[in-house]
Design a protein around this nucleic acid. Structure first.
Length: 562
RNA sequence: UACCCCGUGGUGUAAUGGUAGCACAACAGUUUUUGGUACUGUUUGUCUUGGUUCGAAUCCAGGCGGGGUAGCCA
C-alpha cells in the first residue's frame, strides 16, 4: 500500500490547479509554501498542511518553500524554528535551499508601505485602542472614518519613518490601509498593517520597531517568492479580499491566489496551539514531545513512523467541510505501516513465572524465531529456552471459560517457536491467594511449536526465558482525553476536566528477550501478541531499557470480553 | 441576527447532469505457530421542500442545520 502513487488525488484544490494549468496560468508553474509561525511545535494538523503543500509541489513538478511567518517578535522564538525544521525533515519533505523568513522581507515590505502612503492608500492613525473599536463598527453596523484618515502623505511619511526609528512608544500610532469603513467584511475596514513593537526579534534583533501584520506580510511574501497557490485554512477565507487588495494596490506582477481548506480535527484530542502549550506549561504532560501529545515530536517519540503519518494525511482528504476525523484511522495507519516494517520480538509485560518440571535442569536451547512473517527478507533470530520462563499473567486462568484458548490447568498450549506445555500445578501465596508460579510439563516431541501427530493446539503464548531475560520498563499510553471532542466544551478551558487519568501506565517489571539488550533509541518492534513499541530516549540515561507502546494490536478477544 | 463558507452511511471522503463507490469503524465467517496479518460477507447514506430536465448528490429558489468573522495574533 503505502504511497498509492497511481491513485491520483482529485480534491478540489488539485482540481483547481489542474484547471489553472489548462488555462495557462502562471505559465505552467506550481509553487506552494508551508508558512508556520515559529511560536509553537508542529502537530498532526500541520502535517496535513505540509503533506498538501509539499505533495502538490511534487505531483505537479513544482516547488514548495518553507517560510517562517515571523512578524510578531513577542511570541516567536528560535526554539520553535529549530523544532519545525526538524519535524518537516523527519516527515520526509525537502525544501532544498528555499527556507525563508517573512523577516527577510521587512525592508521590501517597508518600501511598499511607503508606496501605499504615497498613493494615498494608507495613513497613520493615532486612535487609542478603545476609540479604535468604536470607529470600527460591529458585525451588523458600519464603522466610521478615522479623524486621521485624510492626513497628508507628507505627514504620514514623516510619522511612519518616526515609527520605524523608534521615536514612539507602543500603541501610539499604527499604519492603516485606506479601504472602506462601511465594508460588510470587517477585515476591509481600514485594517492595521503596521504596529509599533519594541521587542527584540529572534532574527533582526533590535533593527525594527515596527512590524507588519499577517494580512499585509503574507500576500506580499507570497508574491516575493513567486508563489502560485497559497493554501491556508478556512478561518482565513474572510481575509482573502484583503490578500487580493494589497497585491492589486501595489500593482505587483506576481499574483498568487489564496485557497482555503478545512483544518484537521481528531477525536479524543485537542489541536489548538494555545491549549497544547497550556498542557505543557501546566505540566499536565511531560513536554511538547510527550508521547500522548498530537505534536509531530510527540508522535515521533511515541513510535509513529513518518510513512504512517503521510499515509494518514493521504486518506483524510481535502475539503471545505468542517469535520472531525476518527482517531481510529490514525491508529489504523500506524498499525498498517508497522505491521510490514517492524521486527517481531517477545516481551512479557506482566510476568508470571513458569517452571517446566520435566525439562533438564541446566539446559538452554537456542530456538529459531521468525523476525517478520510479512517480510521474509527480515530473516530469523535465535531465542533461548530453558526450564524457567515467564509468561503473561493474563495468559493463565484457573477457571477458564470455554472460549479461552490460553493456559489453564490440564490444557495444552503452544509456547511460540518452542514447545507445547500443560499446566499441572498452580502455586499460590498462602496469605493472599495470589498466583505466584505455575508448574508445567512439556512435550519434547513438539520442539519449534508443532507436533509429529499434528494434534491441534489452539492457543499460542509468547514467553521469555527467565535467566536470559532483559529487564525493561514499558510505558503504556492511552488516549489523553476521555471524550470525543474535548475542544467542544462550552467554558473554553474546562477541557482539562476530560483528561484521561489512565493515559499513562508505567510497567517497571517487564521481561524482554535478550536480543533486545542492545536495541537503539527510536527503533520500533512488534511485541508479539501485544502491540508496537519503540525504544524511548530515556533508555540512554536509565538503568534499564525503556519502551513506549505506540499502539496495541487489534484484540478481538479483549473486545469480545468487554 | 450583517456578511462569507459548508451540509453524501456511525466517521472521513468519491461520483463535476447518467448504476451512489472507497476507506475506517461495527458485526459475522474463512485461514493462521501472534485471539495479529490476510481474505470473504453483512448493516447503515445524498439535510428539507419545491423547480428545471428524459434523467439531479450534482443546476436554480426557499427553508433548516453547522462553521467562520468585531486582535494593534497568525
Amino acid at each position: 500500500m503505502g504511497e498509492n502513487e497511481n491513485a491520483t488525488k482529485t480534491d478540489f484544490i488539485r482540481s483547481k490547479i489542474t484547471d489553472d494549468l489548462k488555462l495557462g496560468k502562471y505559465s505552467g508553474r506550481v509553487h506552494t509554501r508551508f508558512p508556520p509561525e515559529p511560536n509553537g511545535y508542529l502537530h498532526i494538523g500541520h502535517a496535513k498542511s505540509i503533506c498538501l503543500n509539499f505533495g502538490i509541489a511534487a505531483e505537479f513538478t513544482g516547488l514548495c518553500n518553507l517560510r517562517f511567518d515571523d512578524t510578531n517578535p513577542e511570541k516567536e522564538d528560535v526554539e520553535y524554528v529549530d523544532s519545525i525544521k526538524e519535524d518537516v525533515k523527519w516527515l520526509g519533505f525537502d525544501w532544498q535551499e528555499r527556507m525563508f523568513y517573512a523577516s527577510d522581507y521587512f525592508d521590501q515590505l517597508y518600501e511598499w508601505a511607503v508606496q501605499l502612503i504615497n498613493t494615498e492608500k494608507a495613513y497613520i492613525c493615532e486612535l487609542k485602542s478603545e476609540e479604535f473599536k468604536g470607529y470600527r463598527g460591529t458585525l451588523t453596523e458600519p464603522g466610521k472614518n478615522s479623524p486621521h484618515r485624510n492626513r497628508s502623505a507628507t505627514e504620514n511619511l514623516e510619522l511612519f519613518s518616526g515609527m520605524k526609528a523608534g521615536k514612539f512608544e507602543e500603541n501610539r500610532y499604527v499604519l492603516r490601509a485606506k479601504i472602506d469603513m462601511s465594508h460588510p467584511n470587517l477585515h476591509m475596514r481600514d485594517p492595521v498593517i503596521y504596529r509599533i513593537i519594541n521587542a527584540s526579534h529572534h532574527r533582526t534583533s533590535s533593527k525594527w520597531h515596527i512590524y507588519p501584520m499577517y494580512d499585509y506580510a503574507h500576500p506580499l511574501s507570497d508574491s516575493i517568492e513567486n508563489i502560485t497557490h497559497s493554501l491556508c485554512t478556512l478561518e482565513f477565507e474572510i481575509h482573502r479580499p484583503l490578500y487580493d487588495w494589497f497585491i492589486h494596490a501595489l500593482e505587483l506582477e506576481s499574483r498568487p491566489q489564496q485557497t482555503e481548506f478545512a483544518r484537521l480535527n481528531l477525536t479524543y484530542t485537542i489541536m489548538s496551539k494555545r491549549k497544547l502549550l497550556e498542557l505543557v506549561t501546566e505540566k499536565l504532560v511531560h513536554g511538547w514531545d510527550d508521547p500522548r501529545m498530537p505534536t509531530i515530536c510527540g508522535l515521533r517519540r511515541r513510535g509513529y513512523s513518518p510513512n504512517s503519518i503521510r499515509n494518514f494525511c493521504d486518506k483524510i482528504g481535502i475539503t471545505k467541510f468542517n469535520s472531525s476525523t476518527d482517531i481510529a484511522l490514525l491508529e489504523h495507519c500506524v498499525r498498517d505501516d508497522l505491521n510490514t516494517t517492524s521486527k517481531r520480538v517477545m516481551v512479557v509485560l506482566h510476568p508470571l513465572r513458569v517452571v517446566i518440571e520435566n525439562y533438564p535442569e541446566n539446559q538452554v536451547e537456542e530456538l529459531d524465531a521468525i523476525n517478520n512473517p510479512e517480510d521474509e527478507s527480515m530473516g530469523s533470530r535465535k531465542v533461548p529456552f530453558s526450564k524457567e520462563i515467564y509468561i503473561e499473567q493474563n495468559d493463565f486462568l484457573e477457571d477458564a471459560p470455554k472460549k479461552f484458548f490460553r493456559l489453564t490447568p490440564g490444557k495444552e498450549v503452544r509456547l511460540r517457536y518452542a514447545y507445547y506445555i500443560t499446566c499441572t500445578q498452580v502455586v499460590k501465596d498462602e496469605e493472599t491467594g495470589e498466583i505466584i508460579e505455575l508448574r508445567c510439563t512439556y512435550d519434547p516431541e513438539t520442539r519449534g511449536g508443532s507436533s509429529p501427530d499434528k494434534r491441534k493446539v489452539k492457543g499460542t503464548l509468547h514467553w521469555v526465558s527467565a535467566r536470559q531475560a532483559v529487564d525493561a520498563e514499558v510505558r503504556v499510553y492511552d488516549r489523553l482525553f476521555t471524550v470525543e471532542e474535548p475542544d467542544a466544551v462550552k467554558d473554553d478551558d474546562g477541557y482539562e476536566k476530560f483528561l484521561n487519568p489512565a493515559s499513562l501506565e508505567i510497567l517497571t517489571n517487564c521481561k524482554a528477550e535478550p536480543s533486545l539488550a542492545d536495541a537503539s533509541v527510536g527503533s520500533r518492534f512488534q511485541f508479539e501478541r501485544q502491540g508496537y513499541f519503540n525504544v524511548d530516549p530515556d533508555s540512554a540515561s536509565s538503568e534499564q531499557l525503556v519502551f513506549n507502546r505506540t499502539i496495541a494490536l487489534r484484540d478481538s478477544w479483549a473486545k469480545k470480553n468487554k
